[in-house]
Design a protein around this nucleic acid. Sequence first.
DNA 1: ATACAAGTAGCAATCGATTGCTATTTATTA
DNA 2: TAATAAATAGCAATCGATTGCTACTTGTAT
Lengths: 355, 355
Amino acid sequence: MKPKEVTIYDIAERLNIAASTVSRGLKGHSSVSLETQKKIAAIAEEMGYRSNNFAANLRTKTTNTIGVILPRLNSSFVANVIAGIEKVCNNKGYNLIITQSLESREKEIRNVKTMFSNRVDGLLVSLSEDTKDISHFDLFFKKNIPVLFFDRVPNDKSVASVFINNEEAGYLVTKHLISTGAKRIAHISGNQEINVYEDRFRGYLRALKEFNLSFDERYLIITDLGEETGRETAKAIVNMKADGVFAANDTSAATCMNELKRLGYTVPDDILVAGFNNDVISRNVSPPLTTVDNPGMLIGEIAAKSMVDHLENQMNLHITSGIILKSELIVRESTGNIPQIEEQKYADEQSRLKD
Amino acid sequence: MKPKEVTIYDIAERLNIAASTVSRGLKGHSSVSLETQKKIAAIAEEMGYRSNNFAANLRTKTTNTIGVILPRLNSSFVANVIAGIEKVCNNKGYNLIITQSLESREKEIRNVKTMFSNRVDGLLVSLSEDTKDISHFDLFFKKNIPVLFFDRVPNDKSVASVFINNEEAGYLVTKHLISTGAKRIAHISGNQEINVYEDRFRGYLRALKEFNLSFDERYLIITDLGEETGRETAKAIVNMKADGVFAANDTSAATCMNELKRLGYTVPDDILVAGFNNDVISRNVSPPLTTVDNPGMLIGEIAAKSMVDHLENQMNLHITSGIILKSELIVRESTGNIPQIEEQKYADEQSRLKD
DNA sequence: ATACAAGTAGCAATCGATTGCTATTTATTA
DNA sequence: TAATAAATAGCAATCGATTGCTACTTGTAT
């Protein structure tokens, strides 16, 4: 506390030059000779100087900080996204302020305000489940501060966003279930206001339609997709005599499958089960779950990279409005052993998806 | 960009009072009448004022920001810790800067420097696996900026830290395995330089000793505790004719168990398996894993709360040097069905642990 | 009516880096 | 050698909130 902070003035005094020269010297400005720059750097090091971001920010009105708002932090998928974002931002010298909305629109609004008064240079957002409109981001839109949505993006297609093609993925999973023999496929999903769940459901419907399977309203089971989902849904699934289950995440697929087993059913012989995300759990339950690889880390990296690029190139003043990432169907034992030729077909499907 | 930011000066001018009064009024200082405060608040709202943290920080030399350094962000346990930290900090109005060391001491050192030049008010740290000494935190210690370690804490007992009693937990798991019939227990662990793994191993050894079981060096299998661990260790475990496995995390316990099953062994009949953390995966593999509840969210909350308390009470100038949280043994089928009386014994054990 | 205390509000310096503009020095050319 | 361009460095205002200190109002007690 006592040892005063070293400032550029101290360095300037020590070298008998002006503070402005030190300021410029420290960031390699061309109007300071290389020789002087070296001296400055040496003395700065020696005196234990550290730049004061606040003074700089106050002056430049930029913070080198990116805000991230997430529905919750403790899910496998989100953790991967954060890891990806952190990797990029840290490399580029940006700091991260992270908050969680806990699926509440109100808290999300408060988070946005926090981000706003912290004057983040940009905002990365995955929406809470009860966010229906995005007017609380107007603060940012009005000031032209970039906002990039990912994964759970708003319907408004004009905003910048990064996500996978959930409709296509839902379609592929369902089609796979059908081609492996399922005729009555239940779909465990989340809040249908959220694009990811709605889209997966639409994909599911498309596949049903394509194969002339009728859709019974009872097939769609809306849950919170948490661990309790298994116990809550298994009985309903049995009652509707379903022979296939497509869950919108691996957690619910896994717990549901376990509960089905507990009730005496065999997977995949009695009933096929598929999940979504390719979480660790999907690989370690018995039997391993067929699922869709949802590349969280990549989504995080791409979102962060787009944001940083945007912030650094004053030119590129609009982020490409939608970046759609590829995702892959991963077939495992929970949907039975499919013949080689089928697998090839899926591989083709996947490569088509990638384009 | 064009619409200039509203400052306290604008508000002052509008109300014909001094900026200092506005400043005080906005934070409810007692020297500003309630009436004036209301007027100020109203005008501030109307004009769309937002405080400029940088100006304030520059003046007060405090940032309202807490730094968090973690080994990696994408693990179930760490995600819970972050969620806990965020909850507390967000409530108390602190921002979070989060970085990951990716288990590298070098990156950790860079992270510390970043935190330092960002002038965080305090630092929460879980160490990387190759951090042997903590001299890179001297920057903070010297300046008396609080640093609180959690989970992976340094050996130096004089620094503030929050963690569970890993030795005791390791002891209880092992004792449970023994009392359920295991005599040759393998221990899958991580880098023994890390306190959590070392302590769990010591607890394991203590239980072995207590029950007069000899320890064979081959029993200790050091891995990265990742998903590959199962495939890598199962064969070795079979070769040493172990009848029990205690893994230092659930991921490795689960993958190991699955691999053992694939090799034709039955859990718990042929071999008992126990994990650590009570991750989602521990509840959803077959059979469910006996494990230890490692309360990540609670650890995060307590660490954050201690830090915030410390920052707010200038008085309490030293954080209690060690906060040890209780953790519970959770017995599931992977270690067999134990008679009721045994369970009672464990309940007692657990409540003893809590004191 | 005078004095004194409590309640309010303002003045002005301060925090440290940035940057447009000016001034000085050095190099280059006719 | 004088004149002009290029390189280098400094001046001083600026960003916006904070706070110790002073000053002005009220209200109350004597």
